[in-house]
């Protein structure tokens, strides 16, 4: 009888892989965009079973709520729906297929042949390779009270991440906020209508 952890892993893995295959092979670009939605949700589920709750929420908020909406906007604005030009053309599938197959083979053989060192160090993790500990972290209700209070999975990771962002990662945190600001200004400048050049085709802003 497989553990609940395993069942959820394989469920999310199935969702991720099937929808990612749809993204890669679908002929319709709109279908690909909606398959990407399920990929992002599946990845959020994987974050949850890896006890990264803050990242799971950030994934849903930023990827599903932000990036995917941007992509769908891009698809809708740049495809002439009336001309049925919505099909995504493909090129050079066979070489890409061979290359990707070789790449997958190399990565998987590296991963499966690697001797992964067992870290039992951080007390909040318990022993990751001991499957009972994993189950108790992912489902805190099943652990004994001391186990639950020892692992930080019960408190959530937002506290630790916030502490790290204000201490060890303060400089990257500030830098990334500046990058975000610059990207926003840059995107607004790039996408703005060119007032001096009237010959450019105007986007339909009313819709």
């Amino acid at each position: 009888m497989p553990e609940l952890f395993d069942i959820f892993f394989y469920l999310f893995a199935l969702v991720i892989v099937t929808s990612a295959v749809l993204v890669a092979f679908s002929h319709n670009i709109v279908h690909a965009a909606f398959a990407l939605l399920f990929t992002f949700f599946g990845i959020a589920g994987v974050y949850v079973i890896l006890s990264a709750d803050f990242l799971a929420v950030a994934q849903i908020l930023i990827y599903v709520g932000g990036i995917l909406i941007l992509l769908v906007f891009g698809v809708m604005l740049t495809n002439r729906v009336s001309n049925i030009d919505i099909r995504a053309a493909v090129r050079s599938r066979i070489p890409a297929f061979l290359l990707c197959g070789a790449l997958l083979f190399i990565i998987v053989s590296l991963v499966t042949s690697g001797h992964w060192i067992r870290y039992d160090q951080p007390p909040w993790k318990g022993s990751p390779w001991n499957h009972d500990a994993v189950a108790s972290v992912t489902t805190p209700m099943q652990g004994t009270p001391t186990e639950v209070s020892n692992n930080q999975g019960s408190q959530g990771t937002a506290l630790e991440i916030g502490k790290l962002a204000m201490t060890d990662y303060l400089l990257p945190f500030e830098l990334v906020s500046i990058v975000l600001l610059v990207a926003l200004i840059g995107a607004a400048t790039l996408a703005r209508q060119d007032k001096s050049n009237k010959s450019t085709i105007r986007m339909e802003e009313s819709t």
């Binding site: 893995a13 991720i16 892989v17 990612a20 295959v21 993204v23 890669a24 670009i29 965009a33 990929t39 994987v46 992509l71 891009g74 698809v75 740049t78 995504a88 053309a89 493909v90 090129r91 050079s92 599938r93 890409a96 297929f97 290359l99 990707c100 790449l103 997958l104 990565i107 998987v108 991963v111």
Partner: peptide, 20 residues
């Protein structure tokens, strides 16, 4: 799982003509 996702992403990048 991440390797499979990575390879599918590479495949999408290589084969699609649509920039989006």
């Amino acid at each position: 799982l991440s390797a499979v996702l990575f390879v599918l992403g590479i495949f999408t990048m290589l084969t699609r003509k649509n920039a989006i």
